[in-house]
Design a protein around this nucleic acid. Structure first.
Lengths: 194, 194
DNA sequence: TTTTTTATTGATCCGTCAATCAACAAAAAG
DNA sequence: CTTTTTGTTGATTGACGGATCAATAAAAAA
């Protein structure tokens, strides 16, 4: 008994299921059938709404990236105006429980891999990186002046690296210690120590 | 015309070919046939020497990790005794042209992914991480005392993060700028800035 | 009411790939 | 020599998975 206007609902369910499945499998070796099953439909329907498996992956990636973007935007809007506070808001947003659940981290790591092969994935990733970088620069310039460029590069890489480690370690990811590790770097670079 | 004592030669060729192919493909989606072809033999022979595809991957991973280990050992042996010099030696070794070519970086990234699925891969990776961490700690304790733990965590993550970025960026990897990014962090943490 | 559009699936096609096997060749061992 | 061990491959098997299609059903449009 087909209800109408299913397309957005089905697509959303597939995107969600894709992220979960990738996180579970710890790799992109996930079949369309698995994804469709988790989303409660047949694999044929998944192919109907998205043209191909790659399209499903890209949609999932867009979703994760846009979630992260929204998180950062929200944190910045709610933060005070001084650079230190805004910097901390960005870092916190990067490690919010939302995109810091095991499944999200796993998906993110695997999307990095996807970006090596699929140009569109690489494009999406570079958009995110540019935005992060520009946000960081805006906060860093008042704090470290001409060194802002170098510090932003280090900070960006550090955030990614902490992600990586959390994705691989045995126990559950620890948001607080991730933030602490990054903020330690910030404190040291902005000369806010002893 | 079979020469004798082929086993180690064939195995080495397969390991090398595996790393190249993974680097080229930018993923673990590499067929045994591709690997065998690049190594100049049939896929059946690859299965003859290694039991399975997974065994080939693990051998390749061991090879990369042992190369890196040797690089670090060599750099430490050749370095002066003061902590700063040893720290720099470790960082330099991490970004040596040898394990910093595109193919090696790509392979490394994909081995991270493999570690999510294959326990033995995870074990190998954690051995490397522990060794790196202990080397870093030995250098850092005289420099930053009780903060050594936190700084080592940051440094390790930063090195991984820089790897990640180099694996994804457009042009050829830039060893010098990678070292500079990491050493910037070190300098700032050890208070060696004006 | 007829027609078209949307939703949905089971069955199927076609390609790929890891793994196995039978067979052959040459060196070493006996 | 003949037997065993080592090296090597082409062909084959068996499973899996992405994509397609025909068929069905219901809502909306005509």
């Amino acid at each position: 008994m087909p209800k109408l206007g299913m397309e957005p609902i089905r697509k959303a369910a597939l995107v969600k299921a894709t992220i979960v499945e990738i996180g579970r499998a710890g790799s992109l070796d996930v079949t369309v059938s698995q994804i469709a099953k988790r989303a409660g439909m047949s694999s044929a329907l998944a192919h109907h709404y998205f043209g191909s498996k790659e399209d499903i992956f890209l949609a999932a990636m867009r979703h994760i990236l846009s979630l992260y973007g929204a998180e950062v935007r929200g944190a910045l809007a709610a933060s005070a105006c001084n650079p230190e506070a805004r910097l901390q808001a960005i870092v916190r947003a990067s490690f919010t429980p939302g995109n810091f659940r095991r499944e999200a981290i796993g998906a993110w790591l695997n999307f990095y891999v996807l970006a090596q092969t699929v140009p569109e994935a690489r494009r999406l990733l570079s958009v995110y990186q540019r935005r992060l970088r520009s946000n960081l620069l805006a906060c860093l310039r008042p704090l470290v002046g001409t060194r802002a460029d170098a510090v932003a590069a280090g900070l960006g890489a550090l955030i990614d690296g902490v992600y990586l480690r959390e994705a691989l370690k045995e126990g559950p990811p620890d948001s607080a210690s991730a933030v602490a590790t990054v903020m330690e770097f910030v404190a040291s670079e902005t000369g806010k120590r002893n």
